[in-house]
Amino acid sequence: MSWFGNSEPEPPSGPSPMDLAKQEVDMYSDLFTKMSGLCFKKCVVKMHGESDLNVGEMSCVDRCVSKYMEAQEKVGVILKRAEESLAAQQGGVGGPAAGGVPGVPGR
């Protein structure tokens, strides 16, 4: 998985890379739980008949996951921007938490 790859070297102070990695694991597992729950709610409508997913449900799930991840990225960008402007307003004191928003590629 990608969280091994994208952790940048940290300055000596602040949370350790290990803490960041653990936080990222937790964050992805939460994301996964939420995404599965939502895509189930949105894609599976009737509970009678077959217990297999039908073709419509399968393609719905595929799109649902892809869209959810896209939304995650978009929201991440907005959140990052907001954090940055907040940090700029505060004159860089404190600044955003190290690591920022996980899963968002830096610009």
């Binding site: 998985m1 990608s2 790859g5 994208n6 996964f32 995404m35 599965s36 895509c39 189930f40 894609c43 599976v44 509970m47 009678h48 008949g49 077959e50 217990s51 297999d52 997913l53 449900e57 399968m58 799930v61 595929d62 649902c64 996951v65 892809s66 991840m69 590629p105």
Partner: peptide, 29 residues
């Protein structure tokens, strides 16, 4: 019964697609 089985199957499909997307992202990076 149907609900539980569907949920489990759906979750594993979500895991599969999620993995695809993460792998693609890692590759792009």
């Amino acid at each position: 019964n149907v609900c539980a089985e569907k949920f489990i199957k759906l979750t594993s499909r979500v895991a599969l697609r999620f993995q695809d997307i993460q792998q693609q992202k890692a590759k792009d990076e």
